[in-house]
Amino acid sequence: MNRKQERKLSMFVVLAQFIQGTLSAILAAMPNFDNLFGEFMHKVNEINVLTGNQVLNREGNFIEKITIKELVSKQGGVIAGKVMGYASNNDLYLLYSEVDYTESGLVKLPDTLCRTTCMIIHDKALEHLANLAPYGVTAEMLGEFKANVELYELSIPKPKAGIQDKKAATAGLKVKFQEASVLVAKMFKLTRIVTTEYPEFVEEFINAKRIDKAAYYELSAKGMVVDGEGNRVGKVTMVCNELNFKRRVSASGGFYLKHMEDGVYQFVFSRPGYETTVVKMVFYKGERFDVEVVMKVA
């Protein structure tokens, strides 16, 4: 992966994290945005796999293969148990045997077999979904399970490639970057729909897109402002007198800090109706950190 692609991938990751932190109401106001974002996340994870990086989960956080295997095994075990209960009550012996797996049993399976077994559990549950409501199985639950299984499949190491295969992989990587860039462009066009209602979202989207340019490459911090119950708080003013810095966070409470000077600085967060909150942030060149700012209602 060349330097230009590294910057581009950094932009993809920051953009993914920004969108994941955006209020669902904003995303829902842009028809087809969720579908485009889903395709985009899949392309980014394919790039991550090809370049040996960790993959991203739905929240935009990097995740280890062993962690995602534990997650799908837990979800698969829970869903399998519910389907087994339904099968037992209705004397569906074949169905019972097809999904007779526990969380611990799934974890012990080899990677590819674990993935295949989890998909069997998903498909069988989906096949009987209409009858599984009393057992607590929902379409949303199965959708999340399938997405995690697909993420797990991406994280499974593939056989090392030979010289010719590596050339093909390099060419394939270029294609994946192009496809992901096309999806970013399509999502950006949709942001015009909410320019009037959510101008801060559009501005933050543009800022995230710029990170692939050399001048915007270094991201010092990514943060979120929440209240005491964990709900996002938008339209908060953040000020650092030492850096002569003043900005408002996005409508969804998110903010990014780029090219900050090394050192420890105090940032003051304020908004009418909330107690003023002071947060110390440490910046060091080459390092990026996440911060959560908690503001109490006045």
Rank of each mutant, 00 (worst) to 15 (best):
T195D: 12
G81Y: 01
G60W: 02
H122Y: 15
V49N: 06
Y216V: 02
C240W: 07
V175F: 03
K82W: 08
L113H: 12
T277F: 04
P157H: 01
S73A: 13
A147K: 07
Y216S: 02
N57Y: 13
G77R: 07
I120K: 12
E287N: 10
M187H: 03
N45F: 03
Y86L: 03
P134F: 09
M41Y: 12
Q20C: 15
G21E: 03
S250F: 01
D123W: 04
G254E: 14
N48T: 14
A28T: 15
V78T: 15
N48R: 13
R7V: 01
L106E: 00
A251R: 12
V55T: 13
L94S: 05
P110T: 01
F12W: 13
E292L: 10
K43P: 04
M119I: 13
F245N: 11
V249T: 15
M41K: 12
V279N: 06
K285A: 14
G81R: 02
E218G: 12
P272K: 14
F177C: 05
T196F: 05
K146Q: 12
N89A: 12
F145A: 05
Y152E: 06
E103T: 11
T276R: 14
V14D: 06
N231T: 13
V194S: 00
E59I: 13
P110W: 08
A130N: 06
E197S: 13
Y265Q: 05
S181V: 05
I79A: 03
R7G: 06
N231C: 05
N35H: 11
P157L: 00
Q164W: 11
S104T: 11
T195E: 09
E261F: 07
I120A: 03
L95R: 00
F255N: 10
I47K: 05
D91S: 15
V249Y: 03
L50P: 07
T196Y: 09
Q75R: 15
M260Q: 10
V293M: 02
V236E: 01
E292H: 06
M84C: 08
F40C: 00
A180C: 00
E127A: 13
V293T: 03
E200N: 11
T170W: 01
A185T: 12
E292P: 04
S104M: 10
A221I: 10
V294I: 10
K69W: 05
V137Y: 08
N90P: 03
R288M: 15
V55W: 04
A80K: 01
L36A: 07
K146I: 12
T138Q: 06
L106T: 10
F283C: 06
Y216I: 00
F188T: 13
G263M: 02
L50T: 12
K186P: 01
K174M: 06
A169D: 11
A147I: 08
R192P: 00
L36I: 11
K235A: 07
G81A: 10
L23G: 15
A171P: 04
L95E: 01
N57T: 14
M84N: 08
F145Q: 06
I121M: 09
Y198D: 05
R58P: 09
D111P: 02
A251W: 03
I66M: 08
G105M: 07
G136W: 02
C118E: 01
L36G: 07
E197M: 10
E261Y: 09
K8C: 10
L257I: 14
M281Y: 04
